[in-house]
Design a protein around this nucleic acid. Sequence first.
DNA 1: TTTCATTTGTCCGTATGTATT
DNA 2: AAATACATACGGACAAATGAA
Lengths: 85, 85
Amino acid sequence: MFDDDLDHESGRTLSQQIADRIQKKIHSGDLPPDRAVPSESQIAQIWGVSRDTARRATRILVERGLVYTVVGKGSYVRPPEEWPR
Amino acid sequence: MFDDDLDHESGRTLSQQIADRIQKKIHSGDLPPDRAVPSESQIAQIWGVSRDTARRATRILVERGLVYTVVGKGSYVRPPEEWPR
DNA sequence: TTTCATTTGTCCGTATGTATT
DNA sequence: AAATACATACGGACAAATGAA
């Protein structure tokens, strides 16, 4: 589902690149509303980064208004009606 | 391990002199492949320079192809097969 | 009720990247 | 070259919340 590697050289940070890849899956409908996005542990596993970096990636998506987080459960895709325009 | 003082008078910069000293340890095998070289903080501590100067020293070794850097972890001795000839 | 695994929240220490003064 | 500050990243630890067994 997420297969392309991250670019450690480009100007964009690892967490930004991860957020971008997940955002594409959201906008494409691959990750529908209220569907769980990859957990921090999964992100760390998928892209081979630390949980700290995984957390940053998730927080970026929350700040972009595309994802909401529930403690103890996970982070989920926000309905498109709530996306910022 | 690194005991000789730097020369603040010579033409060579402090970072160059530090890089030279570490390079000797690499070429002598005192710092074997994939062994961590002194961190920027350690360099600053050992030779009494700023972290900025320590960074420059590490950077020089990277540019010489003797060392590779991993963000968040440190800098390490590159295997001799990868050294430029 | 208790136990357990999973997930996020928080904090720590260390290291490098970047920018400013 | 130095001093400082902040961001990004890695690794580890423990707490709190959730839900299932």
